[in-house]
Simulated scan of single mutants.
Amino acid sequence: MKYSSPIKRLIILLVILIPNLGLAQSKNDTIKPTEVWPDKQGNHIQAHGGGIIKVGSNYYWYGEERKKGLDTNYRYVSCYTSKDLVNWTFKNDVQIAKPDSVLVHWVIERPKVYYNKQTKKYVMYMHVDGGVKDPVTGKIAGGYAYARVGVATSNKPTGPFKLIKTFRPLGHESRDIGQFIDDDGTAYLVFEDRPFGFRIAKLSDDYLNVEKEMSLIPAHMEGGAIVHYKGLYYAIGSALTGWSPNPNKYATALSLSGPWSDFKDIAPPETNTYGAQSTMLIKIVGTKQTTVIFMGDIWKPKTQWDSRYLWMPLEIGEDKLWLPKPQPWTLDVKTGEAQVIPNGK
Results as ranks from 00 to 15, higher is better:
residue 13 L to D: 06
residue 17 L to C: 13
residue 17 L to A: 15
residue 19 P to W: 11
residue 21 L to T: 05
residue 22 G to D: 08
residue 26 S to W: 04
residue 37 W to A: 00
residue 42 G to P: 02
residue 44 H to S: 15
residue 48 H to C: 02
residue 54 K to G: 00
residue 55 V to C: 10
residue 55 V to A: 10
residue 55 V to H: 14
residue 58 N to A: 11
residue 59 Y to A: 00
residue 60 Y to A: 04
residue 66 R to K: 15
residue 69 G to S: 03
residue 70 L to F: 02
residue 72 T to C: 13
residue 73 N to G: 15
residue 73 N to F: 11
residue 77 V to H: 01
residue 80 Y to V: 07
residue 83 K to S: 14
residue 91 K to M: 15
residue 95 Q to F: 08
residue 99 P to I: 08
residue 100 D to Q: 01
residue 100 D to T: 04
residue 100 D to F: 00
residue 107 V to F: 07
residue 111 P to M: 01
residue 113 V to C: 02
residue 118 Q to F: 03
residue 121 K to W: 09
residue 123 V to R: 10
residue 126 M to D: 12
residue 128 V to A: 11
residue 133 K to I: 03
residue 135 P to N: 06
residue 136 V to I: 07
residue 142 G to R: 10
residue 145 A to K: 12
residue 146 Y to L: 13
residue 149 V to Q: 08
residue 152 A to W: 04
residue 152 A to V: 03
residue 158 T to W: 14
residue 166 T to V: 07
residue 167 F to H: 15
residue 170 L to Q: 09
residue 179 Q to K: 11
residue 181 I to M: 13
residue 186 T to G: 07
residue 191 F to I: 10
residue 192 E to S: 12
residue 196 F to P: 02
residue 198 F to R: 09
residue 200 I to A: 04
residue 202 K to S: 11
residue 205 D to W: 03
residue 206 D to C: 10
residue 211 E to I: 04
residue 211 E to M: 05
residue 213 E to C: 06
residue 214 M to L: 04
residue 218 P to N: 15
residue 219 A to R: 12
residue 219 A to Q: 14
residue 220 H to Q: 15
residue 227 V to S: 02
residue 228 H to R: 11
residue 233 Y to C: 02
residue 234 Y to P: 04
residue 234 Y to H: 00
residue 239 A to G: 09
residue 253 A to R: 05
residue 256 L to F: 03
residue 263 F to S: 15
residue 265 D to T: 08
residue 268 P to N: 11
residue 268 P to G: 13
residue 271 T to D: 05
residue 277 Q to M: 07
residue 277 Q to H: 05
residue 288 K to E: 10
residue 290 T to W: 04
residue 292 V to A: 01
residue 293 I to T: 02
residue 299 W to N: 12
residue 307 S to W: 01
residue 308 R to V: 06
residue 308 R to S: 04
residue 313 P to Q: 14
residue 315 E to T: 15
residue 316 I to H: 14
residue 318 E to V: 14
residue 321 L to E: 02
residue 323 L to D: 07
residue 328 P to R: 07
residue 329 W to D: 10
residue 329 W to H: 07
residue 329 W to I: 06
residue 331 L to M: 10
residue 332 D to H: 06
residue 333 V to R: 02
residue 335 T to S: 14
residue 336 G to S: 01
residue 338 A to W: 07
residue 339 Q to I: 14
residue 339 Q to T: 13
